[in-house]
Structures are given as C-alpha cells and as structure tokens.
C-alpha cells in the first residue's frame, strides 16, 4: 500500500487494537537511507520538534521534557481514518504525563477505577 507520510500519516490518530487512543502521529522515523519508514513517534516533544521556535519549546516543555514514544511501524495493522495498531496499548510504555497525573492526581481520587458500564 502506498501512503503519503504528510497526508496519510502525520497528525493522524493512533488507536490500539480495541480502538482506545494511543496518541497522534506527531512525527515519523525513517531508516538511515530514508527509504523505509521504521517507526511512528508520538508525544508532545515530537510535536514541539516539528513546530520549532519558542512555541515548539513550550509544547515540549509542557510534556515535562519526556522523550517521544517510539512505536515500531511493524506494529501497525491498518491505516484508515486512524492508524490501527495490532496490539493493546498496555503493551507500550505509558505516556509520562499520563502516568504522572494518574499516580499523583487522578488515581488518588476515589472511584478512579470505576468503569462506566
């Protein structure tokens, strides 16, 4: 399948095999010879890098300086209105900000583990 990186991949939503959001395709990683796509990069620092300038540094700083998460392109099952991964998102490292907020704020509020139905 031919994909245009700029049109079909960048800024598209990545979801896991159950459709739960994982992140946006904030940037991509190419092989040394730039002929193949090796990984998707997601996280504010990847987005900040694409913005550049002061605004880019702010966006990166808002992520607490965490490195972008790297998702090997082999894990992509299908690309349509979203980028579907073949695995559950629990198998990937959690985003740093999500984990910090879970540990220090949201996870401490009673009822944080309750599913809706």
């Amino acid at each position: 399948m031919r994909l245009l990186i700029g049109f079909d991949l960048l800024d598209r939503q990545i979801v896991d095999r159950d459709g739960v959001p994982v992140g946006k395709v904030d940037d991509v990683e190419l092989s040394e010879d730039a002929r193949t796509l090796t990984a998707l990069l997601t996280g504010q620092s990847a987005l900040g890098g694409r913005f550049g300038g002061v605004l880019g540094r702010w966006i990166t700083a808002a992520a607490g300086g965490a490195e972008p998460r790297r998702i090997p392109y082999d894990l992509v099952a299908k690309v349509d209105s979203a980028v579907h991964l073949a695995i559950k998102r629990e198998l990937l490292a959690p985003p740093a900000l999500e984990k910090w907020l879970d540990d220090h704020l949201i996870g401490r509020i009673p009822g944080a583990d309750n599913a809706e139905s």
Binding site: I14, P21, G23, R89, L101
Partner: peptide
C-alpha cells in the same frame, strides 16, 4: 485531548484517561 491524541472519554475508566480528566 483530541488535539494531542490523548485517550479521552467517559467510557474509559478515569485512570485510563488521566490527562483528559485533569
């Protein structure tokens, strides 16, 4: 959440969407 691609929504447990609930 949807701009940054975070997990969101009330159908998830709040801990699974900590940034959204924050």
């Amino acid at each position: 959440a949807q701009y940054f691609g975070w997990s969101w929504g009330k159908y998830l447990r709040p801990r699974q969407a900590a940034r959204f609930h924050t």
